[in-house]
Amino acid sequence: MVQINAPMVGKVLSVDVKPGDQVKKNDVVLTLEAMKMQIKVYAPADGKVVEVNANAGDVVNTDTVLVTLE
């Protein structure tokens, strides 16, 4: 299991994966907005998305697990 936390406080602009998707390392899983900048959050490893805990518009913190991979 690999948990992807928000790298910083920010607002979720879009969630780019859904449960069941296969992702490769450095694929975009989610886009955040912080400091008026769009920040893409990349998958740290290959895997299958098992859980997505964020929706567009959510404000997330560094302790928020955004996506879980297995």
Partner: peptide, 15 residues
């Protein structure tokens, strides 16, 4: 931040 991400996509330097 962008320079860091260019060298390594897993690098979030903004904050």
């Amino acid at each position: 931040h962008n320079m860091g991400a260019e060298a390594n996509p897993q690098n979030y330097l903004l904050m």
